[in-house]
Design a protein around this nucleic acid. Structure first.
Lengths: 221, 221
DNA sequence: AGGGGCCTCCGTCCCCAGACGGAGACGCCT
DNA sequence: AGGCGTCTCCGTCTGGGGACGGAGGCCCCT
């Protein structure tokens, strides 16, 4: 495979330099451009045609959200957007996914996580910061806004109940329904109900995918 | 739960200090003793009764392997041994498990990995350095030595073939047998055969546990 | 007093997964 | 030439997983 082309967008030159340094350590990644604002980002992306755009949320002028919205709306742009932010805020996450971002990471993520994120997003996969995914799962997220807006791939998990998270954790250890039932001191049928609810809420097909989700989201691991 | 008591064994004081610093950052871990040789280690363990012993392999006098052997043979010792070494050598790994170690990590492991390892071993779980587990899986390990010696829990995976590793990787993405078959351009029956072989060789029950194994071993994730 | 959410449980149905046994083709090594 | 290991594929059979519908008890909120 050819190298993945990356564009960095951040109003802080130091942050761009830091990300560039991290990505440069990996031969399959190539930083082909930088921008310091949302407006500039659009120009740079159009001229460099990257696979991934690492986009800061907080920027003067049009921020990362609006820039992302314009990029994904442009049919000439094939890049996937990986959103970066300093703040662990779920509303940012939802807004970013709404704007069409493919991934969402915190800036305090470990370098390997960033690299992994860039690769994942380039491959068209979705990616969420473990810290936030866990929060979204464990806490009840206010989702009352009907908002029938074009939710592309979404995959934003509805809130799981405490019990469901508990079941998911055991499931992700490789336990069968019977074993989970024994651990939780409930009936096998109850466990099956919980598992079914988890799969439905997370839009997964079977328990195998649930294990994958648990590991990727940082719920276990 | 009470704090986990840890003893550090290494002939290099600097290394002990480094590990101590890392572990001290975690309030659930408490370093209760240090030793600079295998002989001293046994004395210290007997007097401090730790939950975990972080044991260097390479030491003058009786090395970490022999010290471990003597510790686990002693009925008064309840501690689990986490083996540490600088060198990525499979023979060390096998010897360490043979000696009765519960875990095996490289010294260049990230601090969080070490902490995670101490906790895992304290809980009685097995732990292998991802770098080595991957190697053990992917490469064919010369296992012709029948060696009917008392293999305690072992769980040392036999070698998987290339194809089997390939199947395991896809399996660990959450794919069904049919989907894997499509990706590999083979029949569904073939995939089932490979999956069965993987489960047998790794002593796992079903594909769910295979996914867990793949993540924990570092094969994917 | 009602309603809604969560946890609990039941039964039925269907399908995938995995075990098991057997088999042919190919390449490598002796 | 023969043996071995890998990859390929087939059949059958059993068990568990998951969907679906229904149900009762509990607690909290209005």
């Amino acid at each position: 495979m050819t190298r993945m082309r990356v564009v960095l967008v951040d109003d802080h030159a130091l942050m761009r330099q830091g990300i560039r340094t991290i990505l440069s350590a990996h031969p399959d990644l190539e930083v082909v451009g930088e921008a310091a604002s949302g407006e500039e980002a659009i120009d740079v992306v159009l001229s460099t045609r990257p696979d991934v755009v690492c986009m800061d949320v907080e920027m003067p002028g049009i921020g990362g959200l609006e820039a992302t919205r314009r990029l994904v709306a442009n049919p000439d742009v094939t890049a996937h957007v990986l959103m970066l932010t300093t703040f662990e805020r779920e509303d940012y996450l939802l807004a970013a996914l709404d704007a069409g971002a493919s991934g969402f990471l915190l800036k305090n993520a470990r370098p390997e996580h960033l690299v992994y994120g860039v690769r994942s997003v380039a491959a068209g996969e979705a990616l969420l910061a473990p810290e936030l995914t866990r929060a979204v799962i464990e806490r009840a997220v206010a989702q009352e806004r009907g908002e029938s807006a074009a939710g592309p791939a979404g995959a934003v998990p509805e809130s799981l109940t405490e019990r469901e998270v508990e079941v998911l954790r055991l499931l992700a250890q490789g336990l069968s329904n019977d074993e989970i039932a024994e651990k939780l001191l409930v009936g096998r049928s109850t466990v099956k109900t919980h598992v079914s609810n988890v799969l439905m809420k997370l839009a997964l097909r079977d328990r195998v995918q649930a294990v994958v989700f648990a590991y990727r989201s940082g719920l276990v691991g």
